[in-house]
């Protein structure tokens, strides 16, 4: 069938034993196996690393499976109360009894302030969207508008979600002065506070959030902030070693 003379004799000779096709395939297979063993694990490893990073980040409001990154977890925070002092308005008032009452008022106001500062600075569900409604609800009708206008000073800010990845509390201290009416009932209280937290920004840098000042409370029983004087003195900070929230 093959025209003679075009190929060297024997080159296409039917007399060849036919090992060649199967053997060559087998040979090729033998040669490919090591490559698959090398490349596929690399791809899988890279995919795995990517998945881990993605889950750890919890981007876009997702729940992080691995700690750190854009955590949606609310870090626990409690103020430490340094003092609670009574200010009597009646001559010859029972100082001891009022001191106890002042402590009771401090006990009443401290969890309110824990919650207030948690919402204002620590709860990702609030600062991620700049939604501080729960903070404003703590202000009297008169003070609320001024408080909302001061959102950037009183809270982490409207654009905190674009700025921060995580915020963890560092320290919070409180001191109370409680004014009593002549009958010994509390009428007003001032909370002098100092609060600090560390915010890790989306660019990887960090800032120390420092807030201090005084909050005047009125309307005992349904305590509301009637006046305030607050200062922010944020500064650059080192990125914390661990993103794990730590309680004060």
């Amino acid at each position: 069938m093959t025209p003679a003379g075009r190929y060297p004799l024997g080159a296409l000779s039917d007399t060849r034993t036919h090992p060649p096709v199967r053997a060559a395939r087998a040979e090729r297979t033998r040669r490919r196996k090591p490559l698959g063993l090398v490349v596929i694990p690399i791809v899988l490893a890279l995919a795995g690393v990517g998945l881990v990073l993605l889950l750890a980040r919890g981007d876009g409001g997702g729940i992080p499976i691995i700690g750190g990154g854009r955590s949606e977890e609310v870090p626990p925070f409690d103020f430490v109360v340094r003092k609670a002092r009574a200010v009597p308005t009646a001559e010859g008032a029972d100082a001891k009894a009022l001191a106890k009452e002042a402590e009771a008022v401090a006990d009443e106001l401290t969890p309110i302030l824990d919650e207030l500062f948690t919402t204002a600075f620590l709860d990702p569900a609030a600062w991620r969207d700049g939604d501080y409604e729960a903070v404003w609800a703590r202000f009297s009708d008169d003070a609320r508008a001024a408080a909302e206008e001061s959102v950037e000073t009183l809270t982490l800010g409207r654009a905190a979600g674009e700025t921060f990845d995580a915020v963890t509390p560092k320290r919070g201290t409180l001191g109370f002065e409680v004014l009593f009416d002549p009958d010994g009932d509390p009428i007003s209280a001032v909370a002098s506070f100092s609060f600090s937290a560390t915010g890790v920004r989306t660019d990887g840098t960090a800032t120390r959030i420092l807030s201090s000042g005084q909050l005047f409370f009125g309307n005992p029983g349904h305590w509301r902030i009637t006046a305030f004087e607050v200062e922010r003195a944020d500064r650059e900070a080192r990125v914390p070693a661990s993103p794990t929230p730590s309680a004060t």
């Binding site: 009297s140 008169d142 003070a143 001024a146 408080a147 001061s150 950037e152 000073t153 009183l154 800010g157 654009a159 674009e162 700025t163 920004r201 989306t202 660019d203 800032t207 000042g213 009637t226 006046a227 305030f228 004087e229 607050v230 200062e231 922010r232 003195a233 944020d234 500064r235 650059e236």
Partner: peptide, 16 residues
């Protein structure tokens, strides 16, 4: 773009 971060002193006050 990252917003400019407040790193200056700022105060807020209200008295009735």
């Amino acid at each position: 773009a990252l917003p400019v971060l407040q790193l200056e002193r700022a105060r807020a006050g209200y008295v009735p």
